[in-house]
Every structure is written in structure tokens, then in C-alpha cells.
Design a protein around this nucleic acid. Structure first.
Lengths: 158, 158
DNA sequence: GTTAAAGTCTAGTAATTTAGTCGGGTATTG
DNA sequence: CAATACCCGACTAAATTACTAGACTTTAAC
């Protein structure tokens, strides 16, 4: 029941991008360095996200990536679904290659999976990248007042 | 972000047991047959659940398995956690082999994983096997009134 | 126009996990 | 004592994951 690295790295990378794109396009090697993720692996993830419109690319020297929309319009559910496919605990409630059950309306187990699926989606579709940025700035500010060094570059390995 | 067959088969098997244990111990081959799951694979799952106290076994001829507690005391969260390990979208919020983050309190991404984890657990820890049994009986009764044949033996492949 | 910094694209592959199978036990009962 | 059923550990095939490699294209600056 874990997300794969695709979803986890992808969200961290998008959050990094949201925090750092004010100066213009952010090259992948910077994100890869800060987040400690292989650059060539990130390339693949960004290719997928670019096709989905989540990021825009600027080619050539001094190029890089920009968010495809304002950060308060990008929900983390969009990111996770783009990279992981539909988020669901079982195929029969995923709407993708949905191998329809024989008697879905009467399947109580299926109803459980639906509830889990819906509760996950409710969480990820209520949080935007902007929410994360605001939260990070709040933490940094509180730590600054306490005299704690800013460690916000250090991310979870999650 | 899928559950493995351990959790899915396990829940289906436990639900099956809850529906059928009124006549005494239920042998695995019956559950395996009804749920279309390999009997030897089910053996492994039941061994794990027996050690966790979720089921009791009765050996010998006419033996089989019984629930380890009344069905309204067995939450599906217990079943899933026993078979799958802690339910969490990322290792850093799983409390298991938790490789603690460098600066967990300041990691916004981690907070997202916590929210997802908590929302899943809230669902699975609020539903008991008895809830599922009641729901199934309700469906069967409604279908009976409508003159629809009872298909409750047919389970999702989920 | 050359060069260096970037993104683009396609394959391939090593490691890990999953989802079982297999074969032999041991306990209990009719 | 034979049938039934749980118990246990080792093994394995298939799938998925998490990358890596390398060739190519685009653009800015000199």
C-alpha cells in the first residue's frame, strides 16, 4: 500500500519547483541535487508531467522547467494520479483497466475499497502546491524566530 | 498504491468466514472454493492471522477455522495491517522500519503522507466484519424482494 | 558558427517484490 | 488407521520498479 518512487519523487520535485521557480525556469539538475534524486530518472517523470500539462519546459541554455499553472491551481492529486495512475487500493475500483466484477453492486468487499479510495482522493484533491509552499514558509519563519537554522532544503527520503 | 493480494484475499476470506462460521469450523478448501483463491496460498495467510489471534484453528477431521473474536470486535484495519504491515503511503510515516527523516518536523511532504495515512486508517478502523455481514444481508434481502437471485457467493476479484 | 547548457526520446537492465507452488510434516476424529 | 485438515519452510516464475545509457535537439552567449 505504498506509493512508488514515481509519485513520491514527483511530488517532492513539484514542491521544489514551486518553491524555486520565481527566478525563472529551474533546470532538472538543480532539483535532482536538492532532492537527491537521479537526474535521468527525474527526466522521465517530468516528461510524463509535461505531457499532462503539469509543467512547461524551456529548452536550450538557461532553460528548465516551470509549473504549468499557478501553484494554487495544482492539486497534489493531479500529480500523483499522473505519475501513479488512479489511486485505488484494488483494481476493481480504479476505473482504469477496470475488470468489472461479476456482481459489483452486491460486493461488500468492493464497497470497502471504494471507501478507502474516496477518502484518499478527498485528501489529495484538497491540497495544492501553494498550500505546501505556505506551510513550508510558516515553518521556516517559526524556526527563524526560534533561532533554528533553516533546513528546508532537507527533504524526507519519503 | 494498491493493496497486495495478501490484504485483499485476506479480507475476502475473513468476510467469508464471518458469513459461514455459524455451523462450526470452516475448512479452508471451502473458503478457497467460494472465493476462488488457491488453498495453499490461503494457508499462509491464515497462519499469519492465527498468530495474530484473528482466527482460531480446529485441527483434525471436521476441523477448520473460526474467527478469533466476535465479528463486531474485528476491524478490517487489524486484518489489513496483519497481512500487509502498517498501511502508509511512504516508509517515513509507517512506524515500522521507519528510517527517520533528517528533519521530519519541517518536512511538508511528510505531512502530506501523514494525512493520507490517517485518512485510510480512519476508514479501516471504523468498519468491522459484522458491519460487512450486515451490509451483505441487507443487499441479499433487497434483492430477494426484487426477485433477483442471490449472488452473494460471487465476490469481486478485488 | 561554435560551444556548452539544457531538454527529449528510446532502450535496456538489475534488483526487488509478489504471488504463488511444492513437498513434506503433525494433529484429530470417525 | 485412514481420512481430513492444519502446519511449516523452501523454492520459483512473473511482474514491477527504479533506475542507467546514450544519442539527439534546441537555445543563449561568446
Amino acid at each position: 500500500m505504498k506509493l512508488s518512487t514515481r509519485g513520491r519523487y514527483g511530488l517532492r520535485a513539484m514542491f521544489d519547483l514551486a518553491m524555486n521557480q520565481s527566478q525563472g525556469p529551474v533546470p532538472l539538475n538543480e532539483i535532482a541535487g536538492r532532492q537527491n534524486i537521479s537526474e535521468s530518472y527525474l527526466e522521465q517523470l517530468f516528461a510524463i508531467m509535461r505531457k499532462a500539462g503539469l509543467v512547461k519546459s524551456v529548452r536550450g541554455a538557461y532553460g528548465g522547467y516551470l509549473l504549468g499553472a499557478p501553484s494554487d491551481k495544482i492539486y497534489i492529486g493531479q500529480i500523483l494520479r499522473t505519475l501513479e495512475g488512479n489511486i485505488a487500493p484494488a483494481d476493481c475500483v480504479s476505473n482504469e483497466d477496470a475488470p468489472e466484477c461479476l456482481d459489483a453492486d452486491a460486493c461488500v468487499t468492493r464497497m470497502i475499497w471504494e471507501k478507502i479510495r474516496d477518502s484518499i482522493n478527498q485528501v489529495v484533491d484538497s491540497i495544492t502546491l501553494e498550500d505546501m509552499v505556505r506551510q513550508q514558509k510558516k515553518i521556516d519563519h517559526e524556526n527563524y524566530k526560534k533561532g533554528i537554522e533553516n533546513n528546508s532544503a532537507i527533504q524526507c527520503n519519503g
